[in-house]
């Protein structure tokens, strides 16, 4: 065996809340002390409640991070996340090490960061990182009525590169007044993509996406139409970050499987979202139903 002392790379430990602010009616922005601030966009951490009625972790993707901290943006969807919403600065919180395979760095010059709802935070992380690598990043994000992270996107990639789809027409005038440089459209992210991406362009581009399953399915279909060489390969390299109800959140329980088609053999296998994902090559994901 190796001489180096064993060090587990999946660990659970206690840390401290730096801030926990409400962004929308049900979305919160949590910053915690975290020694390993260097994360890959798409990676997540497990948050633990330490309660007999909430034993399982809540996996939350990392939206941002720096020297000694990470930022986790989460929606209140049940009792567990409701308890998180009451955390105050200085409170102790149990957390895991960074987990999962993130978005891989774009090999192409242009990056489309496409997110929906509470799926936007990991996409913001990817956008920020790719912009820092000198890529041209266009963000296309969609929300029902209450957008998040728009100022952050504008700061990271330039407001002129941010597009926001809204499903509730009544809120758009107020949003346009508040964010004059960001373009809003009624509809969903595909509505915007159809408007801004010329059908005849053939430049290769990277697309990092996370959001509700119908959105991811729609993107999978959308990129298929761009096949400049007519060889079944889209000009968009699509990467999808998936969500699935998890048990352990680190690859030991086989709870959170998704169906992935092997590009070589065509065989569909069920694999763990937490262990082999959450980010998968877009064309390999076989959605349920």
């Amino acid at each position: 065996m190796a001489d180096a002392p064993y060090r587990a790379d999946v660990r659970r430990f206690s840390t401290r809340v730096l801030s926990n602010t409400q962004l929308t009616s049900n979305i919160y922005d949590l910053r915690i002390e975290y020694a390993e601030g260097a994360f890959l966009p798409g990676q997540f951490v497990n948050l633990y409640l330490n309660r007999a009625d909430r034993l399982l972790p809540r996996p939350i993707s990392v939206a941002d991070g720096g020297e000694g901290w990470i930022r986790l943006i989460y929606a209140v969807v049940g009792k567990g996340t409701e308890i998180f919403s009451r955390l105050n600065p200085g409170d102790a919180l149990d957390v895991s090490t960074l987990i999962g395979n993130g978005f891989k760095p774009s090999p192409h010059g242009t990056v489309y960061a496409v997110g929906g709802g509470v799926g936007v935070p990991p996409v913001f992380a990817a956008a920020k990182k790719e912009a820092a690598r000198g890529k041209r990043v266009v963000a296309v994000v969609g929300f029902r009525a209450e957008p998040i992270l728009l100022d952050d996107f504008a700061g990271a990639i330039g407001a002129e590169n941010v597009y926001c789809a809204i499903e509730d027409a009544s809120v758009i005038p107020a949003l346009e007044a508040r964010y004059p440089e960001i373009r809003f459209a009624l509809g969903n992210v595909v509505t915007i993509l159809s408007q801004i991406i010329p059908a005849e362009a053939d430049e290769k581009a990277f697309m990092a996406a996370c959001g509700p399953t119908p959105m991811l399915k729609a993107l999978q279909e959308y990129v298929k139409a761009f096949d400049p060489e007519n060889d079944g390969r889209s000009r968009f390299e699509l990467q999808l970050s998936l969500e699935e109800r998890m048990g352990c959140g680190f690859g030991c329980c086989a709870g959170c499987v998704t169906q992935i088609r092997d590009p070589q053999t065509g065989t569909v296998r069920r694999v763990g979202v937490c262990s082999l994902g959450p980010v998968f090559a877009g064309e390999t994901v076989v959605f349920y139903g």
Binding site: D53, E244, R245, M246, G247, C253, C256, V257, Y288
Partner: peptide
């Protein structure tokens, strides 16, 4: 899936 549910 879902294959997992939390209980008391």
């Amino acid at each position: 899936t879902p294959r997992i549910a939390e209980t008391y």
